[in-house]
Amino acid sequence: MLIKIVEDIDLQEAYQFLLSPKAGGIDLFVGTVRDHAQGKEVVKLVFEAYAPMALKEMEKLAAAAQQQWPIEKLVMLHAVGEKLVGEPVVLIGVASAHRDAAFTACRFLIDELKKTVPIWKKEFYQDNSVWVNAHP
């Protein structure tokens, strides 16, 4: 497993970590900063995390996924700090012998991360900014 809170997400490093001769399917989800939210143009996002608790929760999610699906390798990365439109902010990767397990586990991990991991974002617009709840 590769689970980290990072300043910048290295897509190639994550993919290289997931490579395995036992894995016939690798599923990667990359969440990026989009240019709009709440009907406004987004300029940037700033992410903050309580890293010790965030990592603990991410490890719990990884363990739960490994109990449910035959996962060969798993990556969970979340960025903190200032991120501009188009930059990656979260990466979930799952390698498994078959694609169905990789897809299903990856979807579970991103959905649960968004619900439970203590990471917050502040959205910056042209005219103001607002903190967004970590768990909508």
Score class of each variant (00 low, 15 high):
Arg99Val: 02
Lys73Gln: 02
Gln68Pro: 10
Ala105Val: 10
Ala64Ser: 04
Lys83His: 05
Ser129Thr: 11
Gln66Phe: 03
Glu72Cys: 05
Trp131Lys: 12
His98Ala: 12
Trp120His: 05
Leu55Pro: 13
Ile110Gln: 04
Asp127Met: 06
Ser96Cys: 03
Asp127Gln: 06
Ala101Asp: 10
Ala134Met: 09
Arg99Asn: 11
Val90Pro: 02
Phe124Leu: 15
Met76Cys: 08
Phe108Val: 08
Ala64Ile: 05
Glu82Thr: 15
Asn128Leu: 13
Thr104Gln: 02
Tyr125Cys: 12
Thr104Asp: 08
Phe103Cys: 14
Arg107Asn: 14
Val130Cys: 14
Asp100Tyr: 13
Asp111Glu: 06
Met58Asn: 03
Gln66Pro: 01
Trp131Asp: 05
Pro70Trp: 02
Met58Leu: 08
Gln67Met: 14
Val132Glu: 02
Gly81Asn: 11
Lys122Ser: 06
Leu109Met: 10
Thr104Leu: 02
Val90Ser: 04
Glu112Asn: 14
Leu55Cys: 07
Cys106Lys: 09
Ala64Thr: 10
Gln67Arg: 13
Gln68Asn: 12
Leu109Thr: 09
Glu57Leu: 13
Pro88His: 00
Glu59Cys: 08
Ala63Met: 07
Gln66Ile: 01
Lys60Tyr: 11
Leu77Asn: 03
Ala97Asp: 06
Thr116Asn: 10
Pro118Gln: 12
Thr116Arg: 15
Thr104Glu: 07
Leu61His: 00
Leu84Cys: 08
Ala65Trp: 03
Thr104Tyr: 02
Pro136Ala: 02
Ala64Leu: 06
Leu74Ser: 01
Ile119Pro: 15
Ala64Cys: 09
Asn133Tyr: 07
Gly93Thr: 03
Ser129Tyr: 13
Leu113His: 05
Leu77Ile: 07
Val89Asn: 08
Ile92Phe: 05
Leu55Tyr: 06
Asn128Cys: 15
Leu55His: 09
Phe124Val: 15
Ala62Met: 06
Ala63Cys: 10
Lys83Ala: 01
Pro88Ser: 01
Glu82Tyr: 04
Leu84Tyr: 13
Ala63Ser: 07
Val130Ile: 15
His98Lys: 13
Pro88Thr: 03
Val117Phe: 03
Pro118Lys: 15
Ala79Val: 11
Ala101Trp: 00
Pro70Asp: 04
Leu61Ser: 03
Val90Lys: 01
Lys115Ile: 00
Met58Val: 01
Leu84Asp: 08
His78Asn: 00
Val94His: 10
Val117Trp: 00
Arg107Ile: 12
Ala63Lys: 14
Lys60Gly: 01
His98Leu: 12
Asn128Tyr: 13
Pro88Asp: 00
Lys60Leu: 07
Val85Cys: 11
Ile71Tyr: 10
Glu112Gln: 09
Leu77Trp: 01
Lys115Ser: 02
Asp127Leu: 03
Leu113Thr: 06
Ala102His: 06
Glu87Pro: 13
Ser96Asn: 14
Lys73Ile: 09
Glu72Phe: 07
